[in-house]
């Protein structure tokens, strides 16, 4: 078996989900090639070479690949994918955007968002917002898979693997990257944070989210949100945790003013410890919480901050 992992990166460094995807490839077993396709992407390729488990880095460096446009990337991946038994990408917006286009070019039925590997052709994936787990066997010659990053540990570091250049990319002339508005934050990234403080409609305003940010900073936590809070405009879209937002599994998830719709639970119920703070004691979030506190969040959050400052008795 030989496995191609498609790295997600910003040309200078790898995105963390790449490391979890490599770990899934290690579970499959076999030679692992990590493809870094970008523009001026030597930095990302150098980092890729030090990922444990990687036999070889394939680097495709072309201005057409700088912005990760699927129309330009897919033909390149198609041209090399047939040499492999498996092609893996992270189930992030990057991988979700790209891999199905490759699958169509290869005439393969992709397997999305796998959470476990049973054998080289059999995989487990959540369906219906995680309310059911399907085990599926692929009959295709090449398996194309996106990997749920929370289900696999991040790969460690090892001594540098060789980097080989690959070519064959071209500008498809179909799409153009105009710009991006990325959320800048000093806090840990949502998908890799050990602790997440997350707010829902109960926060009532974006100003009130500052309370959660202050609590998060005390805990070294990331800040997340339910769809309701994002739709209401309290926080940007990239805060959203849920079926169609980000899937997270931190050691500690503190849900504040979140009722716990199944679509939200789908994104966080694999967290190790869940705390729910909500004034509605009937809120469904309490059914999955390890620690539930029925309280008005506007009183509870300042008290919680205060309690964190004081040492345990």
């Amino acid at each position: 078996m030989s496995i191609l992992v498609i790295a997600e990166h910003d040309n200078t460094s790898l995105r963390p989900a790449t490391l979890n995807t490599v770990s899934a490839a290690v579970v499959l077993g076999g030679e692992i090639d990590l493809l870094v396709a970008g523009g001026d992407c030597q930095g990302a390729a150098d980092e890729a070479a030090t990922v444990a488990g990687v036999s070889r880095v394939l680097m495709a460096d072309d201005p057409a690949l700088t912005d990760g446009l699927a129309e330009n990337l897919a033909p390149l991946i198609e041209s090399i994918a047939r040499d492999y038994s498996h092609v893996l990408a992270p189930a992030t917006t990057y991988g979700k955007n790209l891999l199905p286009r490759v699958a169509a070019l290869l005439d393969v039925q992709q397997i999305s968002d796998i959470s476990a590997i049973e054998s080289p052709d059999t995989f487990v994936r959540p369906i219906y917002a995680g309310n059911a787990l399907a085990t599926v066997r692929s009959l295709d010659a090449v398996k194309l898979i996106t990997v749920r990053s929370t289900a696999f540990d991040a790969a460690g570091q090892a001594s540098a693997a060789p980097i080989e250049m690959v070519s064959g990319s071209q500008e498809a002339g179909l799409s153009k990257f105009i710009g991006e508005e990325l959320t800048r934050s000093e806090r840990p990234e949502l998908t890799t944070a050990d602790i997440i403080v997350s707010g829902g409609r109960g926060m009532q305003s974006s100003e009130n989210f500052e309370m959660l940010e202050s609590l998060a900073d005390k805990l070294g936590a990331a800040v997340g949100a339910s769809r309701a809070a994002v739709d209401a405009g309290y926080v940007p879209n990239d805060y959203q945790v849920g079926q169609t937002g980000k899937v997270v599994a931190p050691d500690l998830y503190i849900a504040v003013g979140i009722s716990g719709a199944i679509q939200h639970l789908a994104g966080m119920k694999d967290s190790k410890i869940i705390v729910a703070i909500n004034k509605d004691e009937e809120a469904p979030i309490f059914q999955v919480a390890d620690y539930g506190w029925v309280a008005d969040l506007f009183e509870a959050i300042p008290q919680l901050e205060e309690a964190l400052d004081s040492p345990s008795p």
Partner: peptide
């Protein structure tokens, strides 16, 4: 192209304990 081997319930997550103060939490 895919054969469904089985579809099962996800592992259940039981509700835990209630706390009544920040210090207890």
């Amino acid at each position: 192209r895919l054969e469904t081997i089985r579809v099962i319930d996800p592992p259940a997550r039981a509700a835990g304990a209630r706390v009544t103060s920040a210090q207890e939490l």
